[in-house]
Design a protein around this nucleic acid. Structure first.
Lengths: 209, 209
DNA sequence: CCTACGTGGCTATTGCTTATAGCTATCCGG
DNA sequence: CCGGATAGCTATAAGCAATAGCCACGTAGG
């Protein structure tokens, strides 16, 4: 019996692809082992069970998402960067449903790799959003600062809000939460424009007129 | 062996409570049967398996949520109604995690009860949001109209956006997607205020200044 | 009153899942 | 070239949903 030559990283990579194809719920160790040409218990030589597989997918997926978002925002600023970031997020989530499903899970406390990957994603979003918050100063230096200094509460709120919009939209779209798929892309663009407008409106002025 | 006197509705009610307590993922037929003082296969005399249990929870939960939202919006209008609706949504979702998890699933096509319950929730949201969309006319008649006539695309977009914000926030909060729980309520309020401000800003004016 | 049928609850079983225990053969370092 | 670490295997346990088939409860009909 020749060895299959598996590695933890290889198993995780195969698991991520399989999760994207069949959905995270349908990702079983048996199916994963079959794809790797190996019996199910053999996977335990490389990873400590299904939770470890999920965690592995989460770390690589967060790294990928962080890179995709960063690339999308390169060379753009202001609302333009926000639009590009949002579209890249949605496109990636739709293209990688299995990876995405595990991306929103918080890292286990003390899991440094996972924490770093998660922080990298938040950092990209922070750099795009910080200049848009409140009285919308367009000084690029603000964006750089946002990564180093502790963020202002309003920036934290804005980041969470954007993540909620993005995450909620992707999830509702995927689970068919919207009635017809008609114009979901338009609705998404609308959501991003409204969010940008809301940020630009500043800390006051909720009531129209 | 005396009969336990179960009914489909009773089983669903117990399942909803159990799901809130242990989480939807941990809601097993075995645990549900045990709580009802019955063996697991007996449940099949009343409901066609786990998917039917989920569907039953979904219908009752959507009805409950629709009522809670409607009650919260009574006697309020404009951004006030929006705030009350949003808080009621979040409170209910946090208080009923099991029910909530199944609330966002789309009804099976042709499932009239589920479709009606889902439509009722959307209807409440529509009545609150419609007056706030675009140039924010405050005529209460608009709200009533929104339920009867086909909704304008912008209203559909706005409803979807609000649902995405609410759903995304609740999910990220529950899964610990936000780093520290610090100020999540503040962030939620911020999100709603920004959303309201974005609606009030009208269809144009994305760029600040 | 009392019988007979419908049905609610049961046991037994199947097939799927994750996970562990223990064996063997392979590969690499000394 | 040999010996130890280990990658893969078989066998197996425990928990899950779901089906098949049995039996006793309880009530509708005579």
């Amino acid at each position: 019996m020749p060895r299959a030559g598996l590695t933890p990283d290889g198993v995780v990579a195969a698991a991520a692809d399989l999760a994207d194809e069949v959905g995270l719920e349908a990702l079983t160790l048996t199916a994963l082992a079959e794809r790797l040409g190996v019996r199910q218990p053999s996977l335990y030589k490389h990873l400590a069970g299904l939770p470890a597989v999920h965690r592995g997918i989460a770390v690589t997926a967060k790294r990928e998402l962080g890179e995709v978002l960063a690339r999308a925002a390169i060379g753009r600023s202001g609302a333009d960067a926000l639009r590009a970031l949002a579209r890249a997020y949605r496109d990636w989530a739709i293209a990688h449903p299995g990876r995405y499903a595990v991306t929103t899970r918080a890292p286990a406390p003390g899991d440094l790799d996972d924490e770093a990957a998660s922080a990298a994603v938040v950092d990209v979003v922070a750099r795009v959003i910080a200049p848009l918050v409140g009285t919308a100063s367009d000084d690029p230096a603000d964006a750089a600062d946002a990564a180093d200094a502790p963020m202002a509460p309003e920036v934290v709120h804005a980041i969470r809000t954007l993540r909620a919009v993005l995450h909620g939209f992707v999830l509702l779209e995927r689970e068919g939460g919207f009635g017809l798929p008609t114009g979901v892309a338009d609705s998404f663009d609308y959501a991003i424009e409204r969010f940008a407008a809301g940020l630009a409106a500043g800390a006051d002025g909720v009531h129209p007129g």
